[in-house]
């Protein structure tokens, strides 16, 4: 009786990722990417942003389509709530980045994922942005990510997936470590 050898892929092409690592080792300049968003103020605290083009592998690249994002504030801030707050969008980015990492690492380690759910919660004291107390920071006071993962693996193996995904996450790094941010105004 033939039993097909089931390879775990979780929908992630690990071969391609490893191949990219190999190829970029030979041509490190191709590894330099630029991610880009454009935005336009709509009204009040509502802004519409769009993401389509980016740069990488030595040339201009494009998503298959333009993706649009509305950011605004809820009505308790006297806004019209046309979209999520920009801060919430950061949480979306963190969840997306860590979960993509978990899927990649799991596949590389031959672990089949059945479900990966996360709740990301960030604390904030709004006295900071309201300029009420100079000792309160504007940013999050802390972020807690709760994962519930069903996978064909031990508890320790699942914990290791989550830990490794943080080690290789752009958004985790961007939120935990300082980044030089240069905001310019063009005439």
């Amino acid at each position: 009786m033939n039993e097909a050898i089931q390879t775990i892929d979780n929908g992630v092409n690990v071969e391609a990722l490893l191949g990219a690592r190999e190829a970029l080792g030979q041509a490190p300049e191709a590894a330099l990417f630029k991610w880009r968003a454009t935005s336009e103020w709509v009204n009040g605290t509502h802004t519409r942003s769009e993401v389509k083009e980016f740069f990488g592998l030595g040339e201009g690249q494009s998503h298959k389509q333009a993706f649009a994002f509305d950011t605004d504030h809820p009505e308790i801030f006297a806004s019209e709530d046309k979209g999520v707050t920009p801060g919430e969008l950061l949480l979306v980015g963190l969840a997306g980045c860590l979960t993509a990492g978990i899927a990649s690492v799991a596949t590389h380690r031959g672990i089949k994922l059945n479900s990966v759910r996360a709740t990301v919660e960030a604390g904030m004291d709004i006295q900071g942005v309201l300029g009420m107390d100079a000792d309160v920071r504007n940013g999050f006071s802390g972020i807690v990510v709760d994962y519930t993962i069903d996978a064909d693996a031990t508890e320790a193996e699942i914990a290791a997936l989550v830990a490794q995904s943080q080690k290789r996450s752009l958004v985790f790094d961007a939120l935990t470590n300082p980044t030089d941010v240069h905001v310019r105004v063009n005439a």
């Binding site: 320790a156 914990a159 290791a160 830990a163 490794q164 943080q166 080690k167 985790f172 790094d173 939120l175 935990t176 470590n177 300082p178």
Partner: peptide, 30 residues
């Protein structure tokens, strides 16, 4: 956490302390 940069006489440290400790604990158990 890991010392990342120094700005205006203050050191800024990474918020990854929990994760590096979790990684070390997991590896110790392994």
């Amino acid at each position: 956490g890991r010392l990342m940069t120094i700005r205006e006489g203050r050191a800024l440290c990474s918020g990854s302390l929990r994760n590096v400790c979790a990684l070390a604990d997991l590896k110790l158990d392994r």
